[in-house]
Amino acid sequence: MGVASLVLGIIALLCGFFLAGLQWVGAIVGVIGIILGALGRKKPESKGIATAGLVCSIIGFIVCIIIYVACAGACAALSGAAGSLS
């Protein structure tokens, strides 16, 4: 679980920082990484790597959210369709 969390966290970071248009994928992957990291921290043998995965997943998720949600909201508002967080 810890390794899976780290892998997903790295993917979320890559989606957030480098892969334009895939931030929504990064957000989903980041959420799953956070869940696996949190659960992995409960086991002493994988606590370290799970913590690393958790941190990467949280950062990746936050970066993806900032870019993806903002684009969705801004597009909706600026195109006259409005109703971002309605």
């Binding site: 248009g21 929504w24 993806y68 949600v69 684009c71 969705a72 909201g73 597009c75 909706a76 508002a77 195109s79 369709a81 409005a82 109703g83 971002s84 967080l85 309605s86």
Partner: peptide
């Protein structure tokens, strides 16, 4: 085509 997902908003 994920344009609808990308450009649409959210409802609380």
């Amino acid at each position: 085509d994920f344009t609808a997902l990308a450009n649409s908003g959210f409802v609380f």
